[in-house]
Nucleic acid binder design. Sequence first.
RNA 1: GCCCCCGUAGCUCAGCGGAAGAGCAAGGCCCUCCUAAGGCCUAGGCCGUAGGUUCGAAUCCUACCGGGGGCACCA
Length: 550
Amino acid sequence: MIPDRIRHLVEEALRAAVKAGDLPEVPVPDVPVERPKHAQHGDFATPVALSLARPMRRAPRQIAEAIVRHLPPNAVIERADVAGPGFVNFHLSPVWVARQVDNVLAKGAHYADVNLGHGRHAQVEFVSANPTGPLTVGHGRNAVIGDTLANVLEATGWNVTREYYYNDAGRQMRILGESVKLRLLEVLGHPVEFPKEYYQGEYIVDIARAILERYGPEAAEEEWPFFKEIAQEMIFADIKATLERLGIRHDVLTNEASFYEDGSIWRVVEALKAKGYAYEEDGAVWFRATAFGADKDRVLVRSTGEPTYRLPDIAYHVQKLERGFELIVDVLGADHVAEMPDVINAVRALGYEADRIRPIFYQFVTLVRHGQAVKMSTRRANFVTLDEVIDEVGGDAVRFFMVSRSHDAQMEFDLELAKAQSDENPVYYVQYAHARTAGILERMAPERGVIFDPEADVTLLTHPAEKALIGEILRLSEVLSQCSHRLEPHHLTFYARDLARAFHIFYRDCPVLTAETAELTAARMKLVKAAQIALARTLALLGMKAPKQM
RNA sequence: GCCCCCGUAGCUCAGCGGAAGAGCAAGGCCCUCCUAAGGCCUAGGCCGUAGGUUCGAAUCCUACCGGGGGCACCA
């Protein structure tokens, strides 16, 4: 990455300045390198002289000037100057920048990879909806954040496992089975009183009908487990199909029941007790959450002998750590904010490196339709499914919008607005840029004298629009690094727009096929190819299609 | 009552210690020219309020005000 190269040059300059006696010797801090907001401030800048002013007891501008003076000779920076209170602004060498186009072409689709993970194993657990109904819009945000994050981690050198955690036992599943049975009786014409707390969705009736078709009216003799099994199977198939429409597939499915079956939940209880972090009181087993600053202790096992949901969660996270993941990302709805500290504290109490667990909480999606908020509860009938939203706005738009806001900001997904604004959709803006690259490259035709020449001289690319486009193409690795570091995939959508804009401006200002000279055409062909690689990569990371024509 | 998230342009939101931004909406321009699903220009801001920390705060701390969500031997 360019900022890293500049950082190293500045660090060298500081060392050289100290050695030459121009600056006093002090511990060298991290050198921040940032992109200035204004073009006149150069391509990159560092404020390091400002923060060194106090320890060095020198005026910031004086330090900045020493840095500039001792900057080692290099091909990257053409000019560095001191500005304002003591910023050092760097102007990149246009020749060096242009040459990066060849570099992008040589590396191809992986040109922006950054090796932050060094092949370490990371797990992203996401969606994790229990098979009690179709995925909702809220699950959609979860799914898209999780999968995009997984893509980003892969691009930054992590070996990623995508995982789905579910519970197919327990009270909710029994209610599911009984709901289906009641609906089946209803379809058969029996008078039925359908309890309020049962699953109200129309899909329950669909499942009942399907069972009738497959097994006949005799199915009515069966008990709830029979219906639960079939319903679960059908709902899971449905969930997987919905995710598939968004291009999402999990590598591993983990069932909560497995932690009961292999006894690991009881080993967790025993281990916590042995370390003094669990105790029995009023017939229940408690976790000493107060030892970690919580306001009260939490129940792990009820007085009935039945564990709370916390216990298998703890066992699951212990298992994740034992499987060797060095980064464990849980994509969770904001309603889980309160419970995660207990899990992490319990895992820490057991002596594991709990810091490897990094939950990310996304705020709720409010779906608005016809100006009215639609509540998303799986148990009520009036929810809108993720499938319906995909039907309306398309999978690419769902992927883009769901990850286009910071995960800790609430988002409003207005279907009417999304449809009304479809022409102004940023999804098309970005995809159209890609289609335009394809449009130009498809016109390569030796008989018309337009070919892709690997020997073309990219240093001819000196137009401001060309320079800006190359700059955006090269920025992807910085964006990836930021997304990966902070586990914030939304930066990618902003980048996608910036990259597309740079291309659209280039497209208008710099004709490729009808450039002034054949040499310039050849050079621009290379740039178009590089832009296509960048756009395709960005769209792929976002899980979107990169159409060749629109 | 306690905890978490959010208050930045009319709207939707980026930026989260270093030199106030984008998209949409509004007004005006640009196709004999590689797809106008595009580009250009204009206008629009005490960055919720008040203190504090800092050479420097939209960004960190405290309090308050608004909006949302969570606080069970429910999952």
